[in-house]
Amino acid sequence: MEKIIDIKGLVFKYNDRVVLDDLELEVRVGDRIGLIGPNGAGKTTLLYIIMGFLKPLKGKIIILEKERKEEKDFIEVRQKIGLLFQDSDSQLFCPTVKEDIAFGPLNLGKSHEEVKEIIDKVAHFFGITHLLERPVYKLSGGEKRLVALAGIFAMNPICYLLDEPSAGLDEQSKTKLIEFLKTQSTYLIVSHEKDFLKEVSNKIFKLEKGKLFQLL
């Protein structure tokens, strides 16, 4: 299974505004892709289309070697590709950090024992063991981002889609994020920070006027 994501001729419009215009994208195992582009270029839109939240006007979306068209095709995609939302507030909704991390694994059908193990492992990895019992809406911005990331990591996805994971993080949290990324093999990161992207990616694309251009 070489190609994880393969998008061909993607066209997407918001009302009359063309956002993505005949866009092509390939993500193979081992690709660490950085994606930059001006505000409103359609970066988040692209991630939402991959996850099946938005339906494109035209184009083929092949994920894990199957064409994905309808809502039910995307259930498998969502179990295997992890999306970190731009706004962590839109990702966390369980009462406590622990339950939020457990949410994904439970959806994957893991048993309670397994889930407990996963929570321990993930919390250790991100150094958030002390936050586990805290309510999510009382965390700081940086803590929320880490917890959100932990919630996705807990599902052990084969590919991550990260929407501005470094925005608003302090040095320490950013180092943690970079450490985490080094342990992962396949991801696509949307970011405005070029230095950060150079450090963590082996390919950089720019999204402009609805198309992707390879910069690196």
Partner: peptide, 18 residues
């Protein structure tokens, strides 16, 4: 947003306590 967050982590509504 919340619905997307749930779906993104593989939530499929079933007749279960979860």
């Amino acid at each position: 947003k919340i619905k997307r967050a749930a779906l993104a982590r593989g939530f499929v509504p079933k007749n279960s306590l979860q």
